Simulated assay, not measured.
Amino acid sequence: MSRLTLFAPLIIFLVLAAFFWRGLSLDPTAMPSALIDKPMPAFSLPTVGDADRVIVGEDLKGEVTLLNVWATWCISCRVEHPYLVKLANQGIKIVGVNYKDDVPAAQKWLKEFSNPYVYSIVDADGRLGIDLGVFGAPETYVLDQQGVIRYKHVGVVDDKVWSERIKPIVDALKEG
């Protein structure tokens, strides 16, 4: 029994080293979502541009859509915004979710920096964000034609992220 206690620190060290080695091999930017391959959560919210226009989850069906969570208080959103405008100009359908933000500030932002969104949903209290599992802004979801979430990206969408991660998914969904 005393020989086993001599090797106990070595065994503990090897077990911990295996856990650390596994942790180092994980992608720190990967943020799995429980909603992948599940329908968009139900909601009914106004838009930034027109408080009388109410959007419901069913409105996101019909074509492949990028759902972009953004806010005027988000510095990374300002970095991402010109690229979203570029994508929208290329015919990519983008719907915004203005997350926990001031509507007049959001309206000013879209007027000043151009509006890449077909419409932007007002999520003033963050309830839709909670249902989506939003960690913070910006986040972008890829929805298929049936409104099912197929991919989630946390962080800025730029040329590299678009071409390597999101565009292949969008293209595959459009092909059927």
Rank of each mutant, 00 (worst) to 15 (best):
D27I: 07
V148Q: 13
A8E: 07
A88R: 10
T29L: 06
A137R: 03
V95H: 02
V64A: 04
K152D: 01
T5Q: 09
V148P: 11
D50R: 07
D131K: 10
N68M: 03
D158Q: 11
G91H: 14
P28Y: 11
A51Q: 15
Y83L: 04
K38S: 15
T140A: 01
V54E: 13
K38I: 14
P32Y: 10
H153W: 12
P32A: 05
N115G: 04
T47M: 05
G96S: 00
N68T: 03
K174E: 14
Q107G: 01
Q90E: 15
Y99D: 03
P39Q: 14
D123A: 03
P28E: 08
A71H: 04
D27M: 07
A18Y: 15
L110D: 01
S33N: 14
E58G: 05
V142P: 03
V79S: 02
K61F: 11
E139H: 04
K111G: 00
A105K: 09
K61T: 12
L16P: 12
V56D: 10
P9E: 06
A71W: 06
K174R: 13
L35M: 08
I75C: 03
A71T: 02
F13R: 03
D171R: 11
I12D: 09
V122P: 01
V85A: 00
T65G: 01
I36Q: 13
V54Q: 13
S76W: 03
G126N: 09
M40P: 09
T65S: 02
G126A: 07
F20M: 11
K86V: 09
V134R: 01
L45V: 13
Y119L: 08
I55K: 05
K108R: 09
V79A: 02
G62L: 13
A105C: 01
L45S: 10
A42E: 15
D131V: 07
P39K: 13
L6M: 04
I149Q: 09
A51M: 14
K174M: 04
G176K: 10
Y141A: 01
T29F: 11
P46C: 08
L66Q: 02
T65K: 07
D125W: 14
V64W: 07
S44G: 12
Y83A: 01
F43E: 06
A124Q: 13
E63A: 10
S44C: 11
A17P: 15
L45A: 12
W21A: 12
N68V: 03
P41I: 09
Q107R: 09
D125T: 15
D131W: 09
S76P: 08
C74A: 02
V79H: 06
L67E: 06
G176M: 05
S120E: 05
H153A: 01
Y83W: 08
V56H: 11
L128T: 06
D27F: 11
T140G: 02
D159V: 05
P32K: 06
A106I: 08
V48A: 00
P138S: 04
Y83R: 02
V134P: 02
I36G: 10
A34P: 10
D50K: 09
V69G: 00
A18G: 15
K38M: 15
K174L: 14
P32C: 03
S44K: 15
H153L: 05
V122E: 05
D102R: 11
V103Y: 14
V170F: 04
D102M: 07
L14P: 13
L173M: 07
A8R: 05
